[in-house]
Amino acid sequence: MIDQALYQRALAVADQPVEERDLINAALRAFIARQAQFRLAGMGEPLPISPMFLAVARTNQRELTAACPTA
């Protein structure tokens, strides 16, 4: 079950109307990316970021921005 207060807050900060599906997909992508960052940071040694990772991150960021533009 989705927390309706949190969902309404997300809709309130969106600059344009966002469909529930798009908002949830963007949130899941952001969560997955954030968890990957934490895992990499927890490895202790800096690792080079692959071009494929950067390409996926940029694509996800564009989709997130399109689905939920910030103020």
Results as ranks from 00 to 15, higher is better:
Met1Pro: 14
Met1Arg: 12
Ile2Ser: 09
Ile2Ala: 09
Gln4Asn: 12
Ala5Met: 09
Ala5Phe: 03
Leu6Ile: 04
Leu6Asp: 14
Gln8Thr: 07
Arg9His: 07
Ala10Ser: 12
Leu11Thr: 03
Gln16Thr: 09
Gln16Trp: 01
Pro17Phe: 03
Val18Gly: 04
Glu19Gln: 08
Arg21Phe: 15
Ile24Ala: 10
Asn25Lys: 12
Ala27Ser: 11
Ala27Trp: 08
Leu28Thr: 04
Arg29Phe: 05
Ala30Gly: 06
Phe31Asn: 15
Phe31Tyr: 06
Ala33Phe: 04
Ala33Lys: 07
Gln35Glu: 05
Gln35Arg: 07
Ala36Gly: 12
Ala36Asn: 11
Gln37Ile: 05
Gln37Glu: 05
Phe38Lys: 05
Arg39Asn: 09
Leu40His: 03
Leu40Phe: 01
Leu40Asn: 12
Gly42Thr: 06
Met43Asn: 15
Met43Trp: 13
Pro46Trp: 00
Leu47Met: 15
Pro48Ser: 08
Pro51Asn: 08
Phe53Pro: 02
Phe53Ile: 01
Phe53Trp: 01
Leu54Phe: 01
Ala55Ser: 11
Ala57Val: 00
Ala57Tyr: 07
Arg58Trp: 03
Thr59His: 04
Thr59Arg: 05
Thr59Tyr: 01
Asn60Phe: 01
Gln61Gly: 00
Gln61Asn: 01
Glu63Tyr: 05
Glu63Leu: 08
Leu64Gly: 06
Ala67Leu: 06
Ala67Ser: 14
Cys68Ala: 11
Cys68Gly: 01
Cys68Asp: 02
Pro69Ser: 09
Pro69Asp: 13
Thr70Pro: 01
Ala71Ser: 10
